[in-house]
Each structure stands twice: as structure tokens, then as C-alpha cells.
């Protein structure tokens, strides 16, 4: 098990390294934006470029492979991602990124807090009422919410709740007072829009798994032993259904750090998503590199965690052995 985890993590780091190297080289192949172009605080940008080893002390670009070497040693290992060159000129990328992180995480955490219990509850209810009208209503709703892109109901939420009925402000509050009521209130539309999809996803998986488990023979045995329906469902069926659902929750939890670019954009959340989009439109390559690395590592890590969580929750699944469906 431990060997398998180590192997997976090392492989992940290798994959990450290759991706980020390709990214770096592709970005550096683009015409370099001369530091003088930006006007103020240029000495800072220039100094930082020199420190990162992208240019020589006179400000001229050095050969690509030396840049790459400096990138590995100073950025990947040393953690110096440079300063913003067009968005927040002269400010440290890492600092800005870290300052943006809380609102993204908080937003997605709230949406998870909404989505997991609600999704599970709906799924369980639908499974217990299989093929009755309650199930049909829930399944239809789930179908719609799973397929319709989240931005469509983000628009609906924004138009109906924020504009028509004026229940919430149109965009999220800026600032850093994250745990005040007004901040939470302003976050709610985004949280709602984010959680609809997750609720539907959880409900769908829970229903599918639970209906399968509910028809199995050991449940019949449990009922014949004299357990009530509630007991069999909660103690036997749900636990087994969780084998599939729990990794999904784990995956979502990792995903919450990544957030949703488009929802954050619609509700003007002062988070990582809009920062990334702005860095692309403003051609702020340092930010682009940092955030690309961030999103890449989140994607890779969530893949590993999902795989591992199968093994943790269900000892029957022996990870790393050949029989584990890995061809």
C-alpha cells in the first residue's frame, strides 16, 4: 500500500514536472514583453526577472535552455514565481495568489456544505421511493441540473434572486472580512449556482448505487433477520453504497480549491478564477505560470486521492495489485 502511494505520488510529480516544463518553454517561446513597456515600478520587475534568471543583468533575454535551468532551480525548487508584470505591477505573484485563495476556498466550501447532505438525502429518498412519483420528480430534476451548464443557472439565479427579487447583491463583496454576515449573504448566489450541479451529481450517484445495493441478497437476509427497513438501509445498504460515493466527495473536496472559473467570473468573486482569466487577457505570464501549475497539481492530486480513497473505504479493493481492474 505505502509503496503504491509513493509510486503514485512520484509519478504524479513527474507528470507535473513535464507539464509545467512544456508550459514554461511554450510561454518563453512567445515574444518576451519588454519590461520597459509598463512604465512605473519597472526596476522592480526587471530586478525580479534577473533574480529569476530569465534575463541577464542588462535586461536582455538569455538562451532558452539556461532560462529553463533557472526556472527549475529558482522557481520550481526555490519557489520564486516572480512579480506581476501587467496586472499588479511589481507585486509578488505568490502573495497575491495567496491573498485571493480564501474567497475561492470559502465559496466552494460553502457550496460543498450545501451540496453533500442535500445530494445524499435526495439520492437516498429517490432510491427508497424507486419508480414512484417522488423518484421520477427527483430523477428528472437531477437530469436537468446535471446537464444544464452551471453558468446557465448562474444567470437565472443572478437575474431572478439578485435582480428581480433583490434578495442578494449582484456581485460578491470585496475585501477580506470573510466571516461576516454580509459577506456570506453576498456569497450565497454564487454558492447556490455552484451547488446545484453538485447536488444533482451526488443525488444521481447515490440513487444509482443505493438501488443496486438495495436489491442485493444480503439485504433480504438482513430484513429476514428482523431488522427494520431503516436499519438495513442505514447500516447495510448505505455503507456499501458509500464505496462509490465517498471517493466522489473526496474528489469534489480537492476540486473546491480549484473552484469554478466561470461562476467566479459571473459573480465577480475576488478569487483565483478571475485572477487567472485576467492574467491570460493581460498576458501576465508569471501569473499564468503560477496558476497553471496550481490548477495542474490540483487536477493530478485529486485523481490520486480518489483512487486511494477507494482502498481506504473498502478493504476488499486491494490497490496496487494487478487484479484492480488496471489493465
Amino acid at each position: 500500500m505505502v509503496r503504491y502511494v509513493i509510486k503514485r505520488v512520484l509519478l504524479m510529480l513527474l507528470t507535473f514536472f513535464i507539464i509545467i516544463s512544456a508550459c514554461f518553454l511554450l510561454i518563453r517561446l512567445l515574444p518576451n514583453v519588454p519590461a520597459q513597456q509598463f512604465g512605473k515600478d519597472m526596476s522592480l520587475v526587471l530586478q525580479r526577472r534577473v533574480r529569476q534568471g530569465l534575463v541577464d543583468s542588462a535586461g536582455n533575454p538569455i538562451p532558452l535552455m539556461s532560462q529553463y535551468w533557472h526556472f527549475i532551480s529558482r522557481t520550481l525548487i526555490g519557489g520564486d514565481w516572480g512579480v506581476s508584470e501587467s496586472l499588479y505591477i511589481g507585486q509578488d505573484c505568490m502573495q497575491i495568489f495567496v491573498s485571493k485563495l480564501p474567497s475561492t476556498i470559502l465559496l466552494n466550501l460553502y457550496s460543498m456544505i450545501f451540496a453533500v447532505p442535500l445530494g445524499l438525502a435526495l439520492g437516498i429518498y429517490a432510491a427508497l421511493k424507486k419508480n414512484k412519483w417522488q423518484d421520477h420528480v427527483i430523477s428528472t430534476g437531477v437530469m436537468i441540473f446535471v446537464s444544464v451548464p452551471s453558468y446557465v443557472y448562474a444567470f437565472l439565479v443572478q437575474y431572478l434572486l439578485c435582480f428581480k427579487f433583490k434578495l442578494f447583491p449582484l456581485v460578491m463583496n470585496s475585501g477580506t472580512k470573510y466571516f461576516t454576515w454580509s459577506m456570506f449573504h453576498s456569497m450565497l448566489p454564487a454558492v447556490l449556482s455552484l451547488s446545484f450541479g453538485s447536488i444533482a451529481g451526488f443525488a444521481r450517484y447515490t440513487r444509482a448505487e443505493l438501488t443496486e445495493v438495495l436489491t442485493s441478497e444480503y439485504l433480504l437476509l438482513a430484513r429476514t433477520k428482523g431488522l427494520t427497513k431503516a436499519q438495513t438501509t442505514s447500516r447495510h445498504a448505505l455503507r456499501n453504497a458509500m464505496v462509490v460515493i465517498f471517493p466522489m466527495i473526496i474528489g469534489e473536496f480537492i476540486g473546491i480549491i480549484g473552484g469554478s472559473l466561470i461562476i467566479e467570473n459571473i459573480f465577480v468573486v475576488p478569487g483565483v478564477g478571475p485572477l487567472y482569466i485576467n492574467s491570460i487577457t493581460a498576458l501576465d505570464y508569471n501569473f499564468f505560470m503560477l496558476l497553471s501549475a496550481f490548477y495542474t497539481i490540483i487536477g493530478l492530486a485529486s485523481g490520486i486521492l480518489i483512487d486511494l480513497s477507494y482502498g481506504f473505504i473498502d478493504p476488499r479493493i486491494r490497490i496496487g495489485s494487478k487484479a484492480n481492474g488496471k489493465y
Binding site: L11, T15, F16, I18, I19, C23, L26, I27, L29, L30, L261, Y276, I280, L283, F288, S292, Y295, T296, G299, L300
Partner: peptide
């Protein structure tokens, strides 16, 4: 395939767009 799968699509699209 693992490596290509690991790149977020938005990064791919942006890089292609820039180049």
C-alpha cells in the same frame, strides 16, 4: 496520455491561442 490528461484544458486552449 497521462500527461496530456493532466493538463487543464484551459491551459491547453490558452497556449494554443497564444501561439
Amino acid at each position: 496520455m497521462d500527461i496530456l490528461n493532466g493538463v487543464p484544458f484551459i491551459v491547453v486552449a490558452t497556449l494554443f491561442q497564444l501561439h
